[in-house]
Every structure is written in structure tokens, then in C-alpha cells.
Simulated scan of single mutants.
Amino acid sequence: MSMQSVVKSITTTQILNKKGVEKITMLTAYDALMAKIFDGEVDMILVGDSLQMSFFGEQDTLSCTLDSMIYHTKAVCNGAKQSLVVCDMPFGSTSTPKLALESAIRVYKETKAQAIKLEVGFEGLETIEMLVQNGIAVMAHIGLKPQFVRSEGGYKVQGKTQDNVESLISLAQKIEQNGAFSILLEGVKAEAAKQIAQSAKIPIIGIGSGAGVDGQVLVWSDAFGFFEEFKPKFVRQYLKGAELLREGVREYVKDVKSGDFPSEQESY
């Protein structure tokens, strides 16, 4: 096997070095099949706790367990050999620095994920520091935090007031100082998000946070039209996935019922 044919994985260092050079791309995936399709096409694959909604059909992400995240992350790592895989830490798995470290060590031991993501405010800075000191690569998630949806009374766009913007900038800078390699910024007004990205030396990956950040992430089922209930404002649909698949299913049903499938060529 020549060295050229050895696939090089994207590392956290490479992601850091893209800041100010090129935009970073990220999609979610929850299984090996999708991960294999996205692998090498996007810089990073997020095994998001969003799977609790898009994969499992729940109303929010709160019931997702660490066991479930590890199961799906293993599957994604089996499919993705190039793109950097990030495992989302589910609600309740990082509520103290000690618990966060125990949870993250499990992720690292049981999967091949190269980083973990956790939703944080100022109270989470100590946790980030502890994880990084113990060899865990951290992506922090700030702005609109889905795991806080109940306590904050819904999904509320951030960055509307100067105080809130200054608070997010300060939080981003402290997250950087504590060693995170990147930040996921969700649901923040575009102008505020741009200021946050400019104030930090680590890449800011946006979702619903405008174009002035260092990269973008979307949930795959939103981006490719497999989730039909509603389309969030910040999503661009690149495929009518559900429609195409449904057409295929109907063709299959029609062929089976008419006796057209399987044909002689498709029989032993």
C-alpha cells in the first residue's frame, strides 16, 4: 500500500488553520450509510443529539442518552474515514466538570470520534478547561442552545441587544482561552455573529447565524429535504429527498403488485 493511498483524516489543527483562509463545512449524520456519502465532501460530520428528533421522532433533544450518542457515533465513524467526526454530548451528561470528563472519556474509549461538542454558558468554562487538560478536543455550542429550550421558554434568537452581543463575545473569547478548538454558534443575528467570529481566533461554525462566520453546519435531513414537517428559515434545501424517495417506493410497490419485479434477469 503506497503512502499516497492512505487516506488522511482531517484533524482539529487543520480545522483551526482554516480560520480566515476558507469556509468550513459541516453536516450531521447518524449512521454509517450517510456518513460514507458525506465523508471527504465536508470538513466535519456532527453526530448531533438532533438525532433524537430527526432520527427518533421526539419533540426535542432532551431525552437523548449518552449510550445512544455512543451507538450512533460508532456507526458514523465506521462510515467516515476522512471528515472529522464530532460527538454531541447529550443533556445531563456534562452537568458537572467531573461528569463531563467521565462522559467524554467514554466517548473517546468507545468510539473513534476526534472531538466532542457541548452546549455551554459561562458556567461551562471550567468543564471545557478540564476536558482539554485531559486530552479531549472540544467544540463549544453557544447562542441558541436546544438543550436549554425548556428553561429558556422556547427557541429564541440571540444577539438582539448590545448586552447580549457583548456577553456572547466575552463567552467566545473565554472559551478560546480555555482551549476549545472551535465554537458552534446557533440562532444568532447575522451582524452579532459576524462580530463574534471576528473577536475570536478559533473558527466559529454557524447555524442560523448568517454568512459572516467561519463555516456552516446543517442537519442533513433539513438540507436534503427528508424532514417535511416544516423548514426552518435558516435552511436551504439542496434536494427534495423525501419526494424522490417516495417516488421510488411507489415504483417498487407498483412493480411488485403488477408482477413486473422480479424479472427473469433478477431471479436465480
Rank of each mutant, 00 (worst) to 15 (best):
E264S: 06
A32V: 06
M69H: 06
F226S: 05
S167Y: 11
Q133C: 04
T94S: 14
M1Q: 12
L185Y: 01
L46N: 00
L171C: 09
A113P: 00
L66Y: 08
S9E: 11
V157I: 10
A115C: 06
M89N: 03
P97Y: 10
F226C: 11
V253T: 14
Q195Y: 03
E266N: 05
I207V: 13
Y238F: 14
A200I: 05
I15F: 05
L51D: 04
V47W: 02
L218G: 05
A200F: 02
K19S: 03
T94M: 13
Y268N: 14
K109W: 06
G210F: 03
S199P: 11
Q14H: 13
R106E: 01
M130L: 15
Q216D: 13
G212F: 05
R236V: 14
E41N: 15
K112R: 14
P90E: 04
G40R: 07
L46W: 00
G210P: 01
S263V: 10
L125K: 02
D163Y: 11
E176F: 00
I202Q: 07
V86W: 01
T25Y: 08
V165H: 00
Q237M: 15
E176G: 01
V6I: 15
A80D: 08
V256P: 01
V138S: 02
K201Y: 12
G57T: 11
G92H: 06
T111N: 03
E58T: 06
I128E: 04
L125M: 11
F55H: 09
E176H: 01
S170G: 13
V85H: 02
E247M: 13
F224L: 15
G225V: 12
K156Q: 10
G79C: 09
K117G: 03
Q59R: 13
G79P: 03
G187D: 05
K19Q: 11
I116L: 01
T111P: 04
L125E: 08
G154E: 12
F148A: 14
Q59E: 15
T61D: 07
D255V: 10
L99M: 12
E176N: 10
K156D: 04
P97F: 08
W220S: 11
I169P: 09
V132G: 00
L245S: 12
A223Y: 02
G135A: 10
N17G: 04
G210L: 01
Y30D: 05
Q173N: 11
Q265I: 13
K257Y: 01
K74Q: 13
D67S: 13
I196M: 03
S50D: 08
Y108A: 14
K189Q: 15
V157Q: 02
A180S: 08
T73N: 04
S182D: 03
E228L: 15
I116E: 07
S182L: 11
L239K: 12
A80K: 07
S83A: 14
S83C: 12
A80M: 12
T96W: 08
V21S: 12
D67E: 15
R106S: 08
E251S: 15
D163V: 10
V42F: 02
I202Y: 00
I128T: 03
D43R: 00
S170P: 05
T94Q: 09
M3H: 14
I37P: 01
F56W: 07
D43K: 00
K257C: 09
